[in-house]
Amino acid sequence: MAFKKAERTQLYLRCALFGPSGSGKTMTALRMAKGIADTMGVPFAVIDTEARSASKYADRIPFDVDDLSEKTVDHYIAAMNECVKAGYRVLVIDSLSHAWRELTDEVDRIAQSSVSKNTFSPWAKVNPKQKRFIDAILNFPGHIIATMRSKTEWVIGEGKGGKVAPEKMGLAPEQGKGIEYEFDLLMELNQKHQATVTKDRTGKFQDESIDKPGEAFGVALYDWLSSGTAAPAPETKPAKTGKVKTEPPKAVPSKLPAEPSTAGSVKDRGKSIVQEIGQLITTVSESGSAYFTEGEKEEARGIIQTIKLDEAGIRDLGDLKGFLADELAKRKTKQESTRAA
């Protein structure tokens, strides 16, 4: 491995729009996608989970659509794989929030059926689905513009003629915590269809307020994205899904190095990961306080006992280890910030 001079390559857009109902997320996404697709000279596709809301604009903006009736992570991923097979290079996902709702509902079901009612164990089981979903978005070989619902709050503002009037405000997007890190461009829309760019890796639009962004804004983004050196041809291998219709669930890829699939090596790898998990859940702070409760430790050990030490089990253990490592890092950060305050 050697260092070399960094250079910016041509990129695929990863843009997310969020805002309350009526802020114009769908129309904005369609118009931006049209600007990019027209510049490229290609059609674009839409994955619609919002009761065919995108198709209401089909008389003004031409596009191809897949109206998802089953709004699960695996059906989202299956639809994205179909986009790859069909050769679409611009995709709108309207919206991501139903995928998150599936996961939170599943966590609630698992927690309520358990004796402890603890959500720690359910999230350890469900988190790999979210990872698969994010990986599918990041690895899509084309531009993606996604929308997310946001929780709504009413505040008192100034209406017409200076009169007091209620105003609808959007809060955090309805998706996983930290979802904003996965996108290059994050835009918050208000009821006047104005977008505030809250994150911008292009460095061109950060903190700008854009009135009704549309085709021209899409073209401006495409010009920046295509201005680098040519990127290597992307892999078009389908993203991994779980169970969709009659297909058997597929395990999530792990970050573990590939090794010969002999019984001995698999068991050795499994024991090694179990030991690492044990070290994570028994970590204590400098003051001697534990980061994980005894109940959470038992939850983790209970999950391990249900995992068979084969190749699929190794991947499951790797996912559990990753989840616990992330959780430990969050708790350490929280403890340090509390101490600093």
Rank of each mutant, 00 (worst) to 15 (best):
K117E: 00
D326S: 09
L320Q: 11
T152S: 13
E102A: 02
D67I: 14
A251T: 14
T262I: 14
T196R: 14
D310N: 14
P173A: 10
K129Q: 13
E167W: 08
E70L: 07
E235H: 09
I36H: 04
A51S: 11
S69G: 10
R201E: 00
I303E: 09
D316H: 14
E286D: 15
I144T: 06
L138H: 06
L309V: 03
G318K: 00
F323V: 06
Q112P: 01
G162R: 12
A124N: 02
V46H: 05
A312V: 15
A99W: 04
Y12H: 14
D200L: 05
W224D: 07
T49D: 10
S121I: 01
D200E: 05
D200Q: 10
K255L: 13
V107P: 01
Q175E: 06
E259I: 15
G142W: 09
I303K: 00
P20L: 06
S287W: 02
M187D: 03
Q130G: 01
G142E: 13
P234T: 10
R339E: 15
K204T: 06
R301L: 13
S227E: 08
M27C: 02
S116A: 08
I93W: 07
G87E: 10
T119S: 08
P128D: 01
A29G: 03
R301S: 04
T262D: 12
N139H: 06
K204E: 12
T196G: 00
L221C: 10
D67H: 14
E286Y: 02
I307Y: 01
L186I: 11
R149S: 10
T293G: 03
R315V: 01
L91F: 08
P122K: 07
G24T: 09
E188S: 08
Q275P: 00
D59F: 02
P20K: 05
E286Q: 12
S261F: 06
G161F: 06
D108W: 04
T49G: 10
T333F: 11
P248N: 13
E7K: 14
G24L: 15
K151P: 02
D38L: 04
I277Y: 01
G228C: 04
F3W: 08
A231C: 11
P128H: 08
N127G: 00
V252A: 11
M27P: 00
K212N: 06
G178V: 06
I307Q: 01
Q206N: 04
I179R: 02
R101C: 02
V92M: 08
G176A: 11
N118D: 15
S121R: 14
F323Q: 04
D310R: 00
D105E: 15
I277E: 07
E70N: 12
M80N: 06
S285I: 04
D64Q: 10
A37G: 03
E167N: 04
E294V: 10
V92L: 13
E158V: 15
F183W: 15
G288C: 04
K129N: 14
I77K: 01
A124E: 03
E158K: 12
P234C: 10
E299S: 10
C15W: 08
D200N: 07
G22H: 06
Q194G: 02
L91W: 09
A86C: 00
A111E: 03
L221D: 05
T49Y: 04
S287E: 15
S116Q: 07
R339S: 14
I281L: 09
T293V: 03
